[in-house]
Design a protein around this nucleic acid. Structure first.
Lengths: 200, 200
DNA sequence: CAAAAAGGTGACCATTTGGTCACCTTTATT
DNA sequence: AATAAAGGTGACCAAATGGTCACCTTTTTG
């Protein structure tokens, strides 16, 4: 049966489609350019996907699967930090990854620009910008409170208080990448301030 | 000289353009539909604006002017709250306005969907989602600290801690309007929690 | 009032764009 | 080796779209 292996034409199409959809939006992307970038003729695309929409849907399928395995299951939790210093390190590492990884940057752009035009993107956007990370940090904070590392408080609220500002600044980074360094510094200041404020 | 008065055709075009650009993006908006919605022929549009881009730019001009008079000058500051209860009331009133006003909803959508395609939108987005409100609340918090209503702290950091989560939830409201009621409740919980935490 | 400016219309044009088709080449499959 | 399936190509099509033009009507203005 058909399998979308790494580096198959099918997946190369999705890779490039992600770039173009993220940069120019769904309507702003045309199949001629997409084909050209892959050194293919336009009609060759149709041997792999039935339509532009089919490419779009396949791309969302892949993104959804990625989020499923990353945020959906309990297995994919990071190791629990054993101190506030470790929490700081872990957090900054995750943020750096999210901010610098080209694929995730493109995903974020796509989610932002198409969130009002597609119901699945809408759902994914909420997961990406709010639900996913918040759930993760709720678990972390809950355990750290139980271990006496953080002050007792509502872990869910705390996770939101922590997650939302970081998300805002990451979005700023995505919007104005030339300010990346400056904003990353801001993020670190915030994270330190936050942990300092809630550590026992 | 030409003046864009309220309800002139020129401004009606911009009104409808805002709706369509916000809903379908720049590329997703076509002049035939725009004209039809205004009960005009397409060629009539060209008597008022030289091109699609000219309409777009005029719309951004108007948005920019709006932000200029609303967040740019010191005059447009709300009256300073004289108690934490007043702060709560004032804040919730502002948030409700922002969340429910159709024009602002459309503006927010436009900023989100076009932030990566246009430098001016990029600038405006940062002002809207971060800079503008943060500056305002920095001023408010600073004064309230001086008046002994809030704990001493870095007012700018506090404004950010306050502003960013609210902005996140407002974006959620914009993305999933069917959850508006639920999210507004969340916002109120957050605002109360925040004020409670920092009041003296 | 006459002239001109402003506002409006429908027909038309060129370009872009998603999609199809007949045909070719390479790679399995029996 | 014969056949079929998969992958690829260029020419072509129809629809959509930004923009132009000649022409008409209403409103301003000297």
């Amino acid at each position: 049966m058909e399998q979308i292996t790494e580096n198959s034409t099918k997946s190369r199409i999705l890779d490039e489609a992600l770039v173009m959809f993220a940069e120019n939006g769904y309507k702003g992307t045309n199949l001629r350019d997409l084909a050209a970038r892959l050194d293919l003729s336009k009609s060759a695309l149709y041997k792999h996907y039935a339509s532009k929409e089919a490419i779009w849907n396949a791309l969302l399928d892949r993104m959804e699967a990625y989020y499923g395995e990353r945020f959906g299951s309990a297995e994919h939790m990071p190791e629990m930090p054993k101190s506030c210093e470790e929490l700081l390190g872990l957090t900054m590492k995750m943020i750096r990854f999210t901010v610098y990884d080209e694929r995730i940057i493109l995903t974020r752009k796509l989610l932002l620009t198409e969130q009002f035009h597609d119901a699945r993107v809408c759902r994914l956007a909420t997961k990406h910008f709010l639900g996913g990370t918040q759930r993760m940090f709720t678990a972390i904070f809950k355990e750290m409170m139980a271990d006496g590392l953080l002050k007792e408080d509502n872990p869910e609220m705390l996770a939101f208080l922590f997650t939302a500002p970081v998300t805002s600044l990451i979005q700023l980074c995505t919007r104005e990448p030339e300010r990346q360094a400056e904003v990353m510094a801001q993020i670190e200041v915030f994270v330190k301030y936050f942990i300092d404020n809630y550590k026992k």
